[in-house]
Design a binder for these strands. Structure first.
Lengths: 234, 234
DNA sequence: AGCGTGGCACGTACGCTGTACGTACGTCAA
DNA sequence: TTGACGTACGTACAGCGTACGTGCCACGCT
């Protein structure tokens, strides 16, 4: 049996969370999985809350960005967003935990740094880069919570919500009733990409607008999503 | 002392959550606040989880929509989004709880119905209405989690994150370091409206595109955000 | 080699949790 | 009057996070 270390404890915690859900996590349970007394954990972790913070930090550190600096910024932020989504799929239950607590670790700052740098290179001002990155994070967090929160167990869920939505009162909720098949359809990938594309194109348009305001001659629509004519927002 | 009822229990639970945070919630504590034995609660609520579900349902039912059916759909969805944000401010700690659990009540279906109806009236197909509403919900959930999750207590938080972000390594995180003042700035209202506006304008553009595809003669830009020329997405 | 020291695993114990269960008291129907 | 039922209560149990005290072991110094 290898020695008890902080990384081993964090790994055991993540394992337990993914296998049995966050509610099943207890210091005694983790210790038992490691073949160790409950109190021994406290030699490496100051409290249960600190352990969960460490779990969050680890999950965030697993995000691996593969975006090519040579690509257009639109493609780069798309790839970065997909990287975040990927770890949400690798650690679905833990991801809920990560998103439920404020970011406090350098591991969480790294993706932020990367996104901000990409946007600055694309020509966004500091203010706009922050605004844009905030909007993206909001969309990411909201999307992944929906995708992942719908997973009560590793079981494929199949008919639970299906049966639920099928019995809504069609007179009270005509739209929900009529669109139930679509609302139930679980093509998370398609839904995620739809919103992501929407956001990216909207931001691309705005970047062009602000660029034209500063240097009207430089209107050179490199992206094919250009709107060559249009009024800025009021 | 009025008789113990389910609504009174739910109200006491919300009160406790808002005053002391979700961690402070226990059946004994709620019962004590009501001047009642802990087990008496179980005559009205089948379990703690069911009580929290009831809390979520109540919070959702408090959303009050005031959008004018005569307004443009862009304004209507904006007002609807603000209505959701409003209850997140009225019940900040409870809102975290609501967003952490899947929607299972008619009270949660009502805002969805309203949004879908608005979008259908605006001319969106069923598929697009569902896609759009999903994207909006994702943005809403993500934004409100950030706004509200940053509130560890009712105390104004002021310097905690400020001090934290001030000490980031500027060589490891140059962007985060340089933009720290902006990242720390807590103008949630402005940030929320920025993303909301971005989404609405992006969706408006897309609606025009799809309308033109079906009936090119009907291109009549009622909104001032029109891009009169542009290619549809690939 | 002997010895002190510090870190680590352990067991016990305390106050808390959700809730199963048995009991007692009120009110209404027959 | 009597029975039944709904509600409030108290007790009890398993499990929780963790404060605290104990003992082992491996190391550095003399």
């Amino acid at each position: 049996m290898p020695p008890l270390t902080r990384p081993r404890i964090v790994a055991a915690a993540i394992d337990l969370i993914e296998r049995e859900g966050a509610d099943a996590v207890s210091m005694r349970r983790i210790a038992a999985d490691l073949g160790v007394g409950a109190m021994s954990l406290y030699n490496h972790v100051s409290s249960k809350a600190a352990l969960l913070d460490a779990v969050a930090e680890f999950v965030l550190s697993q995000i691996s960005f593969t975006d090519d600096p040579g690509d257009a910024w639109t493609e780069r932020v798309r790839v970065q967003a997909r990287a975040v989504r990927q770890i949400a799929h690798d650690y679905p239950r833990s991801t809920m935990l990560v998103m439920s607590r404020p970011v406090r670790s350098p591991a969480g700052l790294f993706p932020l740094e990367r996104a901000l740098a990409t946007l600055r290179e694309a020509g966004f001002s500091g203010e706009d880069a922050v605004r844009v990155v905030r909007t993206f994070i909001a969309y990411l967090v909201g999307s992944l919570m929906r995708e992942v929160g719908v997973t009560p167990a590793f079981a494929p869920v199949h008919d639970s919500e299906d049966g639920h939505l099928a019995e809504v009162d069609a007179t009270l909720f005509p739209q929900v009733g009529a669109l139930a098949p679509l609302l139930v359809a679980r093509d998370h990938e398609e839904a995620f990409e739809y919103g992501l594309d929407l956001l990216i194109r909207a931001i691309a348009l705005q970047l062009q607008d602000s660029a034209r305001l500063q240097d009207p001659a430089a209107t050179r629509p490199k992206e094919s999503t250009a709107a060559k004519e249009g009024s800025a927002r009021g």
